[in-house]
Amino acid sequence: MRKLALAAAGLSLTVGTLGLAVAPDAAAATPCPSGAFCIRETNGTILSKNIFYSYGAHNLSNVTGLRVLVNSQTGGAGFTVCYGYNGVNCSGVSRATGEYEPYDMTPINSVVLVR
């Protein structure tokens, strides 16, 4: 019985370790620079092509699956995600700063930064 308990404890530790390796914690995620809107990769990094500073429409390339959107814009600036290129067929404007829940970016083709 003692061997079984030790084996179960070892399995639990192994599973916990694997979970940490697969999903980065908040401290491991790349921060979005102040004044920018960012799209975080699934591994927690932010590619330079997915850091946006200027207002207006920004077309996306190869941004699919669940991604964390991060609004670090200042002065109450917001963003909207759009199904079409060049800021066409968009959702409502989000102005809260910080990280948003993972969002399925597969059907999204552009983002628009607004004042």
Rank of each mutant, 00 (worst) to 15 (best):
I51K: 03
I51C: 05
K49P: 01
F37Y: 05
A77C: 04
V112F: 14
K49T: 01
T42I: 15
T17G: 10
L60C: 02
Y83V: 00
S34R: 12
S94E: 04
N71G: 03
P24A: 06
N86K: 12
E41D: 10
G10W: 11
L113F: 14
T45P: 02
D104L: 07
Y83C: 08
N43W: 07
V15M: 09
N89W: 15
A57D: 01
F79I: 03
S12K: 08
R95A: 15
T30W: 12
F79A: 14
Y100G: 02
G98P: 00
T17W: 09
C38L: 07
P107E: 12
A96N: 11
S110Q: 07
V114C: 01
G92D: 01
G44S: 07
Q73D: 09
I51G: 01
I51V: 10
C32R: 10
S110G: 03
N59A: 08
V70E: 06
V114G: 10
N89Y: 15
V114D: 06
T30F: 12
L69P: 03
T106P: 04
K49H: 02
Y100E: 05
A57I: 05
F37I: 04
T80I: 00
L69M: 08
R67L: 09
A27S: 11
V93R: 12
G44H: 02
G76S: 09
L11K: 06
A28I: 03
A29T: 07
V112M: 13
P102G: 00
T80K: 15
A23K: 03
H58W: 10
D104R: 08
N43M: 06
Y53E: 12
P102F: 14
S91W: 14
T97G: 15
G65I: 00
M1L: 13
F37G: 02
G44M: 05
C38I: 11
S48M: 13
L13E: 07
V111P: 03
H58N: 08
A7H: 05
A5Q: 15
R67A: 06
F79M: 14
I46C: 15
T14V: 14
N50I: 14
I108G: 03
N71S: 08
G56T: 04
P102T: 00
L18A: 08
A96Q: 15
V88F: 12
S54C: 09
Y85N: 13
K3L: 14
R2S: 11
C90D: 04
M105C: 03
Y100W: 07
V22N: 00
L60I: 06
A28Y: 01
N59H: 05
N62E: 15
N62Q: 15
S48P: 03
I39D: 12
P102A: 07
